Simulated scan of single mutants.
Amino acid sequence: MTVLVSACLLGENCKYNGGNNHHPCVAAFLADKEIIPVCPEILAGLGAPRNPAEIRNGKVVDCLGNDVDQKFREGVRLALEKIGSVPVDLAILQPRSPTCGVRQIYDGSFSGRLIPGQGLFAMALLDMGIKVMDADEFSE
């Protein structure tokens, strides 16, 4: 089984604040699987740390109001390129992210309010027919 996974869930310090979202239950699930770790934001050259970003009116903006949508979309394109023609059985992604959110994303107001929706990368994977799971579906 080949599993695409948000690199931050594996402990890679690629989160917007320079940290990670290491998830022991996800790591345990992946122990006997072939994995493809990916962080579209890092692939796009956004770096870590970086300003927090959310989707507002269909576009990704950072907390200073800068339009970073094209950079995020470039990251998605590069992540899909990294996968290439490898058949991916499952993707496990970081919840609430403007890139990887599966069930919910922040509403774009930077107030911590969540709304139903998907991040750009999660949407692209779903459009390709890849099964996508939110890391919160794995109990800690």
Rank of each mutant, 00 (worst) to 15 (best):
A27W: 00
F29A: 14
L30P: 11
D32H: 13
K33D: 12
K33R: 14
I35R: 02
I36Y: 11
V38H: 09
P40Q: 10
P40F: 15
P40G: 02
L46C: 06
A48I: 00
R50Y: 00
R50H: 12
R50W: 06
N51Q: 04
P52Y: 04
A53D: 09
A53K: 01
A53G: 12
E54V: 02
I55Q: 00
G58N: 08
G58M: 03
V60C: 12
D62F: 01
C63W: 02
C63T: 14
G65Y: 01
N66C: 08
N66S: 13
D67M: 05
D67N: 14
D69A: 04
D69N: 15
D69E: 08
Q70T: 14
K71A: 13
F72K: 05
R73K: 14
G75R: 04
L80I: 08
K82W: 06
G84L: 03
S85T: 07
P87W: 06
P87F: 02
I92M: 00
I92G: 01
I92Y: 04
S97T: 13
C100R: 14
V102D: 06
R103C: 02
Y106K: 11
Y106R: 04
G108P: 11
R113I: 09
L114G: 03
I115P: 07
I115F: 02
M123W: 05
L125E: 06
L125Q: 02
L125A: 05
L126S: 11
L126Y: 02
D127G: 15
D127M: 06
G129R: 13
I130E: 06
K131R: 15
V132Q: 05
M133D: 08
D136C: 10
E137M: 15
